Amino acid sequence: MEHTGPATTVDEIADGIYRISTPVPPQDMPGGFSFNQYLVVDDRPLLYHTGPRKLFGQIRAAIERVMPVSRLAYIGFSHVESDECGTLNDFLELAPDAVPLCGQIAAMVSINDIATRPARAMADGEVISLGTHRIRWLATPHVPHGWECSMAFEETTRTLLCGDLFTQPGDANPPLTEGDILEASEAFRLQMDYYAHSPDTGMHLQRLADLHPATLACMHGSAWRGDGAALLERLSQRLAQRPVQR
Results as ranks from 00 to 15, higher is better:
residue 3 H to A: 14
residue 6 P to V: 13
residue 11 D to F: 14
residue 13 I to Q: 09
residue 14 A to T: 05
residue 20 I to A: 06
residue 24 V to H: 01
residue 25 P to W: 07
residue 27 Q to L: 14
residue 28 D to Q: 10
residue 31 G to E: 01
residue 35 F to K: 13
residue 35 F to L: 15
residue 36 N to K: 06
residue 37 Q to L: 15
residue 39 L to I: 06
residue 41 V to Y: 00
residue 44 R to M: 10
residue 46 L to E: 04
residue 46 L to K: 07
residue 48 Y to G: 05
residue 49 H to P: 04
residue 55 L to P: 00
residue 59 I to V: 10
residue 62 A to K: 03
residue 62 A to N: 06
residue 62 A to M: 05
residue 64 E to D: 13
residue 65 R to W: 03
residue 66 V to P: 02
residue 69 V to G: 02
residue 70 S to R: 10
residue 71 R to V: 03
residue 71 R to A: 11
residue 74 Y to D: 01
residue 76 G to N: 02
residue 76 G to R: 00
residue 77 F to R: 12
residue 80 V to I: 15
residue 82 S to I: 11
residue 82 S to F: 12
residue 82 S to A: 15
residue 83 D to H: 13
residue 86 G to C: 09
residue 89 N to W: 00
residue 92 L to C: 10
residue 96 P to R: 03
residue 96 P to L: 08
residue 98 A to F: 07
residue 99 V to N: 14
residue 101 L to E: 06
residue 102 C to F: 04
residue 105 I to A: 11
residue 105 I to V: 14
residue 107 A to M: 04
residue 110 S to H: 15
residue 114 I to K: 12
residue 118 P to A: 09
residue 121 A to H: 06
residue 126 E to V: 04
residue 129 S to I: 07
residue 129 S to A: 15
residue 132 T to I: 08
residue 137 W to Y: 14
residue 138 L to Q: 02
residue 141 P to F: 04
residue 143 V to T: 15
residue 145 H to P: 10
residue 145 H to K: 12
residue 152 A to Q: 11
residue 152 A to P: 06
residue 153 F to K: 13
residue 154 E to F: 07
residue 159 T to S: 05
residue 162 C to T: 05
residue 165 L to T: 07
residue 167 T to H: 12
residue 169 P to T: 08
residue 174 P to V: 02
residue 176 L to Y: 08
residue 185 S to V: 05
residue 194 Y to E: 02
residue 196 A to V: 03
residue 196 A to I: 03
residue 197 H to E: 04
residue 198 S to G: 05
residue 199 P to R: 01
residue 202 G to Q: 08
residue 202 G to E: 12
residue 206 Q to K: 15
residue 206 Q to A: 11
residue 206 Q to S: 09
residue 208 L to T: 00
residue 215 T to E: 01
residue 216 L to G: 00
residue 223 A to D: 00
residue 234 R to G: 00
residue 235 L to A: 01
residue 235 L to G: 03
residue 235 L to P: 04
residue 240 A to S: 10
residue 240 A to P: 00
